[in-house]
Write a protein that binds this DNA or RNA. Sequence first.
DNA 1: CGAATCTTTGAATCCTCTCAAGTCTTGTGG
DNA 2: CCACAAGACTTGAGAGGATTCAAAGATTCG
Lengths: 248, 248
Amino acid sequence: MNILNPKTKCLSGQREGSADCRHCAIRQHSLFAGLDISKFELLLKPIRQYCFPTNKLVFAQHIPATNVYVVRKGLIKLEETLPDGTQRIVRLIPPGGVAGLETVLDHAQRYDYSAITLRATELCQIPYAVLRQIQVEESGFAEVLMQFWHKQLLAAEQVIVDFSTGTVRERIVKILLSLAALAEQENAQSMYLPSVRDLAALSGVTRESASRVVAELKRLNLLSKAGVNQVQYDMEGLTSLIHCEEKQ
Amino acid sequence: MNILNPKTKCLSGQREGSADCRHCAIRQHSLFAGLDISKFELLLKPIRQYCFPTNKLVFAQHIPATNVYVVRKGLIKLEETLPDGTQRIVRLIPPGGVAGLETVLDHAQRYDYSAITLRATELCQIPYAVLRQIQVEESGFAEVLMQFWHKQLLAAEQVIVDFSTGTVRERIVKILLSLAALAEQENAQSMYLPSVRDLAALSGVTRESASRVVAELKRLNLLSKAGVNQVQYDMEGLTSLIHCEEKQ
DNA sequence: CGAATCTTTGAATCCTCTCAAGTCTTGTGG
DNA sequence: CCACAAGACTTGAGAGGATTCAAAGATTCG
């Protein structure tokens, strides 16, 4: 919930310093929206900001849950490892979203899933005690927290309805459209293309199947490489693929 | 949140009368657990209890959300209808669970999904204003509500990880094991077997595929009919099916 | 009892997975 | 800075599984 100092280097999971929520660009869109920050200045001191590279573990499933994380920039996955060793992603958390909300519950002291960055990601780490105290002092904060619970639910439901239903091509295209929408929000020139492994884990198919679809989309010029894990995309072309399939 | 008067007939969506939360058998396991009911007696008056038969719409997706429903007995599905006309179930709500929690949010005035009974189901209908008022008077109630948000999330995640991953047989068996666990909780002689349509909508496969698996399980004597939508089951046999598949 | 709906089953097709080999990338150490 | 190793991705071929289409058999409800 603060501005990343561009002079600070972004090392592996390194602490960037304590948060400056007053000047956070994303604040009004996230957990502390509507909060009178000056009133809580002291309370917010324990908040730390981190900067993770791609594929770093933010917290592991089953370990004691002590912090909620706000995604300021980047993208996180919440996933579970299945008995056969493959992963299943249960939801993605875009900028403005939170991970580890189970921390705020009295009786769920462990994280339900592992949280891992999909790309370079800036996070704010908010200790349990801070949220608890804000709840005490701000009667409206419980309402805000529930909005975030709701967001989590909607994200999980999207995984079910959009990403885990239909043919492999439909699923992958819907994932890409969803990520393209994120890119548009940031006015980015290109969009983030997850690894084949993550596309597979998010859609519940094999890596090979996911790879074939991505290759096909590139062949159709609906995607074209624009850097490491970055692609340019043809929004209309991708969208039309889904509509064709729905007509079946 | 009250005891169903056994003398009252259970008609289609008919109101059973106002709630008597003080004597509710399920209360200590649901939304009002830990609440001093006598203190809220007047407030809880608007709560109504309903008794729905199989396959009745409790509320429809997109209509204004004005009530939260507590499942006292039976089973509810939350589902969405896809463009091709088939349904996708995003989660099941067992006794003690709630549906329509989005009602309590300030900014989400419409239901995210349609709620439909899978079997004869007893519900308590709790108006928004009641929950809001309890939140005002009981500082701990927000915590309880969040526990229920968490439950919803876990249910959605189960649909992703268990019911929408792996072969059709694995998925169906995991659904059945989950329902068998519910039956054991109630010390029932047999378990509820959803319609083929619902099994398909819950696992994201076609009705035919779901039907074939159920037929196969009956042939293997892991399921045997014990009434309308009721089956006896071989817990160990079903469980071993999953373990075999995981070893692959 | 009859209509409508749901379920079952078969056969053919299509899709997805599996297995395997080869290619490309990435990160590390010399 | 390059070489190498490990891991990720791609691609093909074949097998197996799921879907589709179709028709017949149950069930349910009025």
